[in-house]
């Protein structure tokens, strides 16, 4: 028995933030400059009352409506999010009920960002290939924009909200073929934690201070109100220059393949400028390097399933194609895997 990726659907909230709108906030920028430096034309922004769980329900409902599976088929639901509804209970438990999944279904949240989809695939494969379950929903959902200060262009130009729902299912294996999902390479370096962080709102700097009007200050006495996303873009970029080439070499080595064996390279869609630099540095042929983020921006853990879906819709993937997936970012955390494309609808 082996795990295969059977279906993907994704959902973007309707509210649009485009480059001309951003330039109204920051008049020293131009729409062309934002486009050329990020590869993004618009991002989608969740409404105030629209949470990660709401986006996830929409994405999974699309999956059910597509006919790929029905609620009663799901044995296990995992939700990757860093913007959950509550500290507790687990948002995946709320989703089990809202989606009408069986009460005999397992459910958990896991907290990862840009590497999350790779880790989700790894866990789903483990659950299926050890015979524990047959159908796993890997759901990624983020509302990072709720953490973003409206005037902070370094992050507002990049991030958008989204959810993706991916069905991983058990299939009889054929030993002569490469695995449908895998092998995997993982990595972690917590020294980078400070470079992409929401400092307040957790136990270390609780938000209670805001209610009393106190605010919370960081080491440089910047008042951080309310929980706010901080990104040191140059440090993150330097991290990717260090980590990603080794990660790509690592997965090739683990899988026993060369670049010639890879039909499509699909990286976490962080920002197109950075992706092009990485592509050229690693010497990946441009025609096999897929980018799809202009319509939604950096959606954190959803970028890889969204780009996979778009590559499929655009006819860039056919059954049996080998796809390299590479995720990297907040943590720092990274991971890579190989897919043998099995989605045919």
């Amino acid at each position: 028995m082996q795990a295969i990726l059977k279906a993907i659907e994704y959902y973007l909230p309707p509210q649009v933030l485009n480059n001309p709108q951003l330039c109204e906030i920051a008049p020293n920028w131009s729409p062309q400059k934002i486009q050329s430096k990020t590869g993004i034309e618009e991002r989608r922004i969740s409404e105030e009352e629209e949470l990660s769980s709401d986006l996830a329900v929409k994405a999974v409902t699309k999956l059910f409506e597509s006919g790929a599976c029905q609620p009663e088929d799901i044995d296990y639901l995992m939700l990757c999010t860093q913007s959950p509804d509550y500290f507790l209970p687990t948002t995946a438990c709320l989703l089990q009920h809202r989606l009408g999944l069986r009460t005999s279904c397992g459910a958990l949240d896991f907290n990862l960002g840009c590497s999350g989809f790779i880790y989700g695939l790894g866990m789903a494969k483990g659950l299926i290939e050890t015979g524990q379950v047959k159908n796993v929903l890997v759901v990624t959902a983020e509302t990072y924009t709720k953490f973003i200060t409206p005037t902070d262009m370094s992050v507002r130009t990049l991030f958008g909200d989204a959810s993706a729902a991916t069905l991983i299912t058990a299939q009889d294996s054929h030993s002569e073929q490469a695995p449908a999902i895998g092998p995997f390479v993982y990595g972690t370096d917590g020294r980078g934690a400070k470079n992409l962080i929401v400092q307040t709102g957790g136990m270390r700097k609780p938000v209670a201070g805001f209610a009393s009007g106190g605010g919370v200050e960081d080491a440089d006495e910047h008042v951080l109100v309310p929980p706010t996303l901080y990104m040191n873009g140059p440090e993150i970029f330097l991290f990717t220059l260090d980590a990603v080439p080794d990660l790509v070499a690592g997965i090739c080595n683990r899988a026993g393949i060369t670049f010639d064996d890879v039909d499509l390279f699909l990286f976490h869609q962080a920002n197109e400028y950075m992706l092009r630099h990485l592509r050229d540095k690693i010497e990946i042929p441009p025609e096999r390097f897929y980018v799809s983020m202009s319509h939604c921006g950096n959606t954190v853990s959803s970028t890889i399933p969204i780009a996979l879906k778009e590559a499929h819709k655009a006819g860039r993937l056919k059954t049996g194609d080998r796809v390299m997936l590479v995720g990297f970012g907040v943590g720092y955390s990274w991971g890579a895997t190989m897919l043998r494309w099995a989605m045919n609808t």
């Binding site: 440090e235 630099h277 540095k281």
Partner: peptide, 25 residues
């Protein structure tokens, strides 16, 4: 700007083969 800062790191890597940390820059 923050974007040309990233571009500078990319340029140093691509044209000169060195990775200089943002703090050093």
């Amino acid at each position: 700007s923050s974007m040309t800062f990233i571009g500078l790191i990319a340029m140093l890597d691509e044209d000169f083969g060195v990775r200089i940390s943002p703090g050093t820059i």
